[in-house]
């Protein structure tokens, strides 16, 4: 993994199939970095993947991200869900739940927490969320989060935890505590343990983990 700054030319190993990921700009035939961060070159399903792992302060929704959001109101046939403080809320349709119908749909209240997936991010429209698995249409762990506590971490750390479910902090915590966890790519983590004290302890452990070096 190497460090890249905006404008750096990126040398690609294989000239065949390259998937260009976030923060990398394709300029004709040359590939340049657009953000400061760590350059990642990996292989995935036969093609080279190239992206920059950067830590930004504010969450910018991108499609298929898993997020933890707060319902801040309802409007027409959809809920408004805040993904981060002081940002435009995203939209979660009343029927964007598994097997939801006019008669049978989850009724969320203002202030409820949901775990959702970003369905679309058209720049001209509001960000849309869905609460079911895109491939199966089943619940897939999405939906209302009851109890527990939610806290903020750095965006890069949240992404890291989402991708590495075997991160040492999580595996070690799992040995000691019982807890439910929902990690949002928007830098919010929801956690619920058997007791209040344990929840706080787990929260502290995960929070402190973001100050450690990531490998």
């Amino acid at each position: 993994m190497s460090f890249a700054l905006p404008g750096d030319q990126i040398q690609l190993q294989s000239a065949t199939n390259v998937v260009v990921g976030p923060h990398v700009r394709l300029d004709g035939t040359s590939v340049t970095a657009a953000t400061a961060g760590f350059l990642v070159n990996t292989q995935s399903q036969g093609s080279a993947v190239c992206y920059i792992e950067a830590d930004s302060k504010r969450y910018v929704p991108s499609s298929q991200d898993f997020v933890v959001g707060t319902v801040v109101g309802s409007f027409g046939e959809s809920y408004r869900v805040s993904l981060s403080n002081f940002s435009t809320p995203a939209v979660l349709g009343f029927y964007a739940f598994p097997n939801a119908s006019k008669k049978n749909r989850p009724r969320l209240k203002t202030g409820d927490l949901v775990y959702a997936r970003i369905a679309s991010t058209d720049p001209d429209l509001d960000v849309e969320l869905e609460c079911f698995d895109a491939t199966t249409g089943k619940e897939g762990g999405f939906g209302l989060l009851e109890g527990g506590f939610v806290f903020d971490v750095r965006l890069a750390y949240a992404r890291h935890l989402l991708r590495h479910q075997d991160a040492p902090v999580l595996t070690k915590l799992m040995k000691k505590y019982q807890f439910e966890l929902a990690i949002g790519a928007n830098g919010r983590i929801w956690i619920k343990s058997d007791t209040l004290q344990n929840t706080i302890e787990c929260m502290k452990a995960i929070q402190n983990g973001q100050n450690e070096k990531q490998t």
Binding site: T70, V72, N85, G111, G148, M203
Partner: peptide, 23 residues
């Protein structure tokens, strides 16, 4: 604009305070 504080956080903080615990 205000911070968007969820009911979960509200309940959790209050419960903790009742047990004389702060975050």
């Amino acid at each position: 604009r205000d911070y968007d504080i969820s009911n979960n956080e509200r309940q959790f903080v209050l419960q903790a305070l009742e047990q004389n615990v702060r975050l």
